[in-house]
Structures are given as structure tokens and as C-alpha cells.
């Protein structure tokens, strides 16, 4: 009996020791004292999957002496986190939904800070024959004649919302599209996993430029449709309104907006990934709406 207890205790002790050495950052619960304030930001998956947030996070934390907690989710969920007051600030890309968020009083102001373009990617052989069509025409062809597999995000994200807009512009009711048949697949996942799924299945999907470029080496997908006015993709940052949602850390949230729109960080956003991918992932937009 004693032996077992000793054995057990020593293992537990060892494990927690290992933990306390390496896991000191988790001490939010172990030590109640937290010297640094924490700011919670909910971000669209594309800004997270490209690694942009991972790149900017330490700079912001150092400059403002704050711990930044980044939650990644589709734009729809990120906005819901804001409405529930579970985050202080959000970075998303769905203009209509963002304007509603601000109009409903949940957000203070929509501040665009970067943009790029959406594109339809698919297998190089292009079995549906939609290469270089306009996005609306490409979708029409997929729906009416080609019936090649198309993977949709299906998660109310900004990309999903853009997809719905294109279906609408092409003259289709989205509810009918999604129920149409086996060729239309709803992944319900972030942009990266959706791209991987499309690549595995040899299917088409709508993606933002940044995530596509950062995943390109893992994919057997090429750009199929990459021009057309509807494909503009604007990222903005919105502070949650403390007047509507109590408990929001508005000062820290405003710091993040100042940080993202500062000339120095705007330059870094513009240069992010250029060396690695040979193309610009994000075009900085200095706090203003980019022209189409």
C-alpha cells in the first residue's frame, strides 16, 4: 500500500513539476495575481491560418504590455462572441454583417485595415471548365451543367457570406443551392481545413488569397477564377461597444486598433509573407475603405 501511494504521489508530483516549469503561462489559475491585463480578440480564421496574427501578437504584447488572447472562428461566430461580450475586439471580413453589428450598437466603428481578393480554386485539369469566367458565371455553370464537387465553408464565415453573395448575384436562391445534391459539400470548418478537404477530394472552393497562398504547398489546387468586382475581401477591426456590452476593455481594444492602423504595422502587414510566397497576402488599407 505504502509503495503504491509513494509511486502515485511521486508521479503526480513529477507531472505537476514538469508542468510548472514549462506551463508557467497557464498559471492564470495557479496564481490569482495577474500583472498584465488580458485583451481578448476574436479573429476570422483566415487572419489566423495565414499566421498573420501569430506574427503581430508578440509585437502588440510588447508595445502595450498586455496579454493578447486570440480566438479564431468564422466571422459569424466572431461577431457572436462580440455580442455576448466574450471578447473585447474583433477582426473580421464581412462588410454587411459588420455594418449590422455596428448599427445594432454592439460595435463602435468599423475600421478597415487590410484587403485582398477572394478566388475560386480547383484542380488544375478544371473538369467543370470554368477557368477565367466571371465568378457569377462560374457558379452558374457549376450549378446548372458541371455539377463538379464544390466545398463550401458552411460556417457563416465572411468567406461563406461572400459565397452566398455570389450565388445571389448569379440568380440562385442559396437555400436551393445548398440542398441541390451531392456535388455541393458543406465543410463547416475554417478556411485552411476546407482547402485541405477540397484538395483531397479534387473539388472547387472559394478562398481568400492569404490562406490559399500560405497553404499552397500542401494543396493540389490552382487558381481558377481570380478576377471580378465581387471578389474584393476587406478585413476590418471593430471594438465592442462597452455602452451596449458591459465589461469590455475599451482602452486596450482601442490600442489594438491604433496598432493595426499605425504606418509601421501597416507596412509589416503589406510585407507579410511576400518573401515566403512571392506574392502579397494582404494589402494595407490604412483605416479606409479600399476602392473596388
Amino acid at each position: 500500500m505504502k509503495k503504491v501511494t509513494c509511486y502515485l504521489l511521486s508521479i503526480l508530483l513529477l507531472l505537476s513539476l514538469v508542468g510548472s516549469i514549462f506551463g508557467c503561462t497557464s498559471s492564470g489559475t495557479v496564481e490569482p495575481l495577474q500583472p498584465k491585463p488580458r485583451l481578448k480578440v476574436a479573429t476570422t480564421t483566415s487572419l489566423y491560418d495565414t499566421g498573420l496574427w501569430g506574427y503581430l501578437e508578440p509585437m502588440f504584447e510588447k508595445q502595450y504590455n498586455v496579454e493578447l488572447d486570440i480566438l479564431y472562428a468564422g466571422t459569424g461566430i466572431a461577431l457572436e462572441f462580440g455580442r455576448r461580450g466574450d471578447v473585447d475586439v474583433i477582426t473580421v471580413h464581412d462588410k454587411a454583417a459588420e455594418e449590422k453589428f455596428v448599427a445594432d450598437g454592439y460595435g463602435i466603428e468599423r475600421v478597415p485595415f487590410a484587403y485582398n481578393y477572394f478566388l475560386v480554386v480547383g484542380p488544375a485539369a478544371d473538369p467543370a471548365g470554368i477557368k477565367d469566367l466571371k465568378p457569377e458565371e462560374a457558379f452558374k455553370k457549376l450549378m446548372t451543367t458541371a455539377k463538379e464537387k464544390f466545398i463550401s465553408r458552411g460556417d457563416n464565415s465572411g468567406t461563406h457570406s461572400k459565397e452566398k453573395t455570389i450565388w445571389k448575384n448569379a440568380g440562385f436562391d442559396y437555400e436551393i443551392v445548398r440542398k441541390s445534391s451531392a456535388w455541393y459539400v458543406e465543410a463547416g470548418q475554417g478556411m485552411g481545413p476546407t482547402l485541405l478537404m477540397a484538395s483531397e477530394k479534387g473539388a472547387y472552393t472559394l478562398t481568400d488569397m492569404g490562406t490559399y497562398l500560405s497553404y499552397k504547398s500542401k494543396l493540389e489546387l490552382v487558381p481558377i477564377v481570380d478576377h471580378g468586382g465581387t471578389l474584393l475581401n476587406v478585413y476590418s477591426v471593430i471594438a465592442v461597444n462597452p455602452a451596449k456590452v458591459p465589461g469590455v476593455k475599451i482602452d486596450e481594444a482601442n490600442n489594438l486598433i491604433t496598432f493595426l492602423t499605425s504606418p509601421e504595422i501597416q507596412n509589416l502587414i503589406g510585407d507579410y509573407g511576400v518573401k515566403e510566397y512571392g506574392l502579397q497576402l494582404f494589402t494595407p488599407s490604412t483605416g479606409a475603405e479600399p476602392k473596388q
Partner: peptide, 17 residues
């Protein structure tokens, strides 16, 4: 690897606690 150890340590602390 620091990242692996940090994540494993955190898992252990949380679940033991």
C-alpha cells in the same frame, strides 16, 4: 521542444487540478 513541453505541461496541470 519548448512548445511541446509547454502544451503537455499545461494539459497535465489542468487535468490533475
Amino acid at each position: 521542444d519548448p512548445e511541446v513541453m509547454e502544451i503537455a505541461g499545461r494539459s497535465l496541470i489542468i487535468s490533475v487540478a
